[in-house]
């Protein structure tokens, strides 16, 4: 699963630690999600969407679906 977490965070000039505190997760979790090493749970994805005030699919994209559409 691809995600735009790093881009969205950079746009707001937030550090990984600040985003982690805002989402109630560890900084390591934010780092792992941004690097694509770890896919968040649905509740965490919803929290991120609420925080950035955008839809979940605008943050997280299914790579398999994207390949099929091409």
């Amino acid at each position: 699963m691809k995600n735009k977490l790093k881009v969205l965070r950079a746009e707001r000039d937030w550090t990984q630690a600040q985003l982690a505190t805002a989402l109630d997760v560890s900084r390591q979790t934010i780092n792992a999600i941004e690097k694509g090493k770890f896919d968040p749970s649905l509740p965490l994805a919803f929290r991120a969407a609420r925080l950035f005030n955008i839809k979940i699919e605008d943050i997280f994209q299914d790579e398999v679906l994207d390949k099929n559409l091409k």
Binding site: R12, W14, Q18, T21, A22, L23, D24, S26, A48, L51
Partner: peptide, 12 residues
Amino acid sequence: MNKETTQNSSLE
């Protein structure tokens, strides 16, 4: 930045 928590206390 608002804190988006689902539980009563922080993770730490």
